[in-house]
Simulated assay, not measured.
Amino acid sequence: MSTPEERLAELGLELPEVVKPLASYVPTAVSGSLIYTAGQLPIVAGELQATGKVGAEVSPEQAQALARICALNAIAAVRAEAGSLERVRIVKVTGFVASTPDFYGQPQVVNGASDLLGEVFGDAGVHARSAVGVAVLPRNAPVEVELIAEVS
């Protein structure tokens, strides 16, 4: 069985630098064996990849791809804290989707994050999850993802 880092490479993905906090918080906090990430936006190389609401300016398919970027940023934050991904299990994912009042596909959007976690961590990526529709997110981002990971 390959490691999460090897699976990332197989997927053609590289972990980015941990996104610098946009306000007064830290990227991760540790309690016992759990690592909590701050909410991660779809930022690549310092640039927010899209703005607007899902169901208006952003399609569900675009939002799902953005959730995948958020998850990759969260994985980077976990790795920076844990030093390695080999002993990491994903426990909980919370996805926030800035969406129009008539959009009900938040679970499918957050599947972008959940599917990536499964691809990278295999069985250790199976997790509990919430997918929440919200009025607005920081910087007018369409999606934000946070997670809780356990290090054994």
Rank of each mutant, 00 (worst) to 15 (best):
A76G: 06
E47R: 15
E81Q: 15
V93R: 00
M1W: 10
S130E: 15
P107C: 11
L72P: 06
T100N: 05
Y25V: 07
T28S: 02
V88H: 04
P42M: 10
L15I: 07
V78Y: 00
S33F: 05
S2I: 09
S59I: 10
D123M: 10
F121R: 06
G105L: 06
A71C: 09
V93Q: 00
R129L: 09
R7I: 04
Y25L: 14
R79G: 03
L85D: 04
I35P: 01
M1S: 14
T51P: 06
L147N: 07
G118R: 13
P101T: 12
T94P: 05
P101A: 09
R139A: 10
P4V: 10
S114D: 06
Q108K: 15
E144H: 08
A128R: 13
N73M: 01
S130K: 14
Q40S: 14
Y25T: 08
L22F: 08
G118P: 09
V58F: 08
V132L: 15
P4Y: 14
E81W: 02
Y104W: 10
E119K: 14
R89W: 06
G95V: 06
S31R: 10
V30W: 00
G112T: 03
G105Q: 06
V145W: 10
E81G: 01
A141M: 09
R7C: 07
E6A: 15
V151Q: 13
V30M: 06
A131K: 01
R7E: 09
V91L: 10
L15T: 05
A77Y: 00
R139D: 08
A50D: 04
L11D: 14
A38P: 04
I148M: 15
V97A: 10
E81I: 03
L85P: 02
D102K: 11
G133D: 02
